[in-house]
Write a protein that binds this DNA or RNA. Structure first.
Lengths: 145, 145
DNA sequence: CTTGACCTTCCAATGGTGGGAAGCCCCACC
DNA sequence: GGTGGGGCTTCCCACCATTGGAAGGTCAAG
């Protein structure tokens, strides 16, 4: 099966399949005489596993661990559970941060007249100079939030 | 004032101050004879505005709009409100997606014995082959989630 | 005058994904 | 036997925000 077909069946784009192979998340696919990658149904199954894990927000490093456990017939379910639980914590932390942002903004928006006048509590809050305890903190990267 | 001092007072790292200047978010700083950037309290104020907006999850493009409105004395608060409201919607959407992930995982974790045995509903779900309607959908980028 | 803290510019990496170019391969159709 | 179009290959670049580091100039205190 060509990479395009594997992509269709797994829901993982051909681009990403090659990428996952390049970073070692999946083993190098077999090749036909033409040089084309050749995929078996088992490979599609694995790709679908990856796709589903991505949909659940796991990052590649975690998916790697999960894949290893998946393949390991002598695995202990507690290992899987630990990874998942840790991930849930991370998700909840991100949610909490986003919710705090949204709530703060909601309050400000509710206080804003939203008319033709220039006075705006949102801008007032943003430009408020009265914030002393503000260090050049290693602010979290956007994609980690 | 040197960039280090401006960084300390604003909470924006020197690296990012230079970056914001490079991408045109802030105007080029004045220079001393030595070539060092020179910052006035007003610049620190602007940087603090940016810092606060980032903390609320605004992306640079939005911060640019907000800065322009901030500087525009004839602005209409409705413009600010609209930007903020749109941003809240985006935040809520991200929260909803993360919550769905967390809830799905929570269910799976609750069903997992978490002991020495290999049987695990989490892996079973991930590897479930019974998912036909799975297209190579243009999955959202990580930092947009 | 040296030392160390600060500043400068430039380049690279992060993570996950998409876009595109240049060139090869394969199949169906005429 | 050609030819056209679609799929495949590799390689490089972009996104977003941020950090790290190297190589070198500047400043203040000792």
């Amino acid at each position: 099966m060509n990479i395009g077909e594997a992509a269709k069946q797994s829901g993982v784009s051909a681009k990403m399949i090659r990428h996952y192979e390049a970073i070692g998340l999946i083993p190098p696919a077999g090749r036909k005489d033409s040089g084309y990658r050749d995929y078996a149904p088992a490979d599609v199954h694995m790709l679908r596993f990856i796709r589903r894990a991505r949909d659940l927000g796991f990052v590649v490093a975690e998916i790697n661990e999960l894949l290893n456990l998946w393949r390991d017939r002598s695995r202990q379910s507690t290992d899987v559970k630990r990874i998942a639980a840790t991930h849930i914590e991370a998700l909840r932390a991100r949610i909490a941060r986003l919710e705090q942002m949204a709530n703060t903004l909601e309050t400000l928006v509710d206080c804003c007249a939203g008319d033709h006048r220039p006075d705006c509590p949102i801008l007032a809050d943003l430009g408020d100079v009265a914030e002393p305890a503000l260090k050049p903190v290693p602010s979290t990267r956007a994609f980690e939030i």
